[in-house]
């Protein structure tokens, strides 16, 4: 029998592994540096607090106030809409469901929903939010007469509901995972003390799983912040707020939410060479702000997770 020597292929294998990781790290760094290099020149307080120019021609002069606010609004609203459903689904799957067809159905639905591309969810929102019954969500839906279903209902509210659908499975899975990592002995102990099921779930399980729930929430918020396809279809392509002006006055808030606007992502798309703006330093300036927001969001989640001593910082990838 001839002996085999694995020195060469092991060395090659180790080199391959390191090159893979370093390549990914280099690309990540390169993206950050590129965004910072092109975007930094744009960054100023004025850029942040000025409304965008009204058209492609004067886009250079404007800032990103409304897209920034649009992103924050959508993130909050979308999360608010998704969280109760995600919590309910996770608690049901972990504590109330008996093994059987119904449980399988719920789990399968969550899995399939997680695999639906965002662009498909975006089109779905176009198809369902033309129904007059949803008129309260958007000023663009024709509630009387027959619009032929061609006036697509677009608004912050419509977009937030769509975002909630998109993040529902991810937040749910993340919460399930953190609920499952609560030591069974805590839960058994609480039952042994005679606590009712709902009390055990609410006071022991959900409390222990808090860091994981925060992680899941941030994961979902990150997805909303970064999404473009849904905003493109469900919120529309207008850079400014289109409700009753001035949009920032409290009496006009409802109108603002029922009308269209933009987020940082659609602003980037619009100002990039792919869109109409063709002003890529503006696009990079907005990208810089966007990535900064995402990093801050994750850092805040890590801090909260650590403060609550969860230590089960799950992978957000």
């Amino acid at each position: 029998m001839k002996g085999r020597d694995h020195r060469l292929d092991s060395a090659l294998g180790i080199a391959y592994s390191w090159i893979s990781m370093l390549l990914m790290a280099a690309v990540c760094l390169f993206i950050l540096v590129t965004v910072a290099r092109y975007g930094a020149g744009k960054l100023s307080l004025e850029f942040l607090i000025t409304e965008p120019g009204a058209s492609a021609v004067d886009i250079e002069g404007g800032g990103i106030l409304t897209p920034l606010i649009g992103t924050v609004l959508l993130t909050m609203l979308g999360m608010l809409a998704a969280l109760p459903f995600s919590l309910a689904t996770a608690v049901y799957i972990c504590f109330y469901a008996r093994p059987g067809a119904l449980l399988t159905l719920v789990e399968t639905a969550v899995d399939i929903l997680a695999g639906v591309p965002t662009v498909v969810i975006a089109l779905f929102s176009l198809s369902i939010f033309v129904l007059p019954q949803f008129g309260f969500l958007s000023a663009m839906i024709e509630t009387d007469g027959d619009g032929g279903g061609m006036a697509y209902g677009r608004s912050f509210l419509v977009c937030a509901v769509t975002m909630a659908i998109m993040i529902l499975p991810f937040v749910t899975k993340s919460i399930i995972e953190s609920l499952r990592s609560v030591p069974g002995s805590y839960i058994d102990g609480a039952f042994a003390l005679g606590a009712g099921k709902w009390r055990v779930v609410a006071q022991i399980a959900l409390r222990c799983a808090r860091p994981g729930i925060v992680t899941g929430t941030v994961l979902g918020m990150g997805r909303i912040v970064g999404d473009t396809a849904i905003v493109w279809f469900a919120l529309g392509g207008t850079l400014r707020m289109t409700g009753v002006q001035p949009w920032y006055m409290p009496e006009n808030w409802i109108s603002t939410l029922r009308n269209t606007g933009s987020t940082l992502t659609t602003y980037i798309y619009y100002t990039s060479p792919a869109g109409e703006g063709n002003s890529f330093d503006t696009a990079f300036g907005a990208s810089l702000v966007l990535i900064g927001m995402i990093i801050l969001l994750n850092a805040a989640a890590a801090l909260v997770g650590r403060a609550w001593g969860g230590g089960n910082g799950q992978d957000a990838g």
Binding site: C28, G222, I295
Partner: peptide, 20 residues
């Protein structure tokens, strides 16, 4: 690093793709 790469929005990937 991997999480950061996963968190970079697709429109930024598109922008870098287009410019670089």
């Amino acid at each position: 690093v991997v999480r950061l790469l996963a968190a970079i929005p697709s429109v930024v990937f598109g922008l870098i793709g287009l410019i670089v």
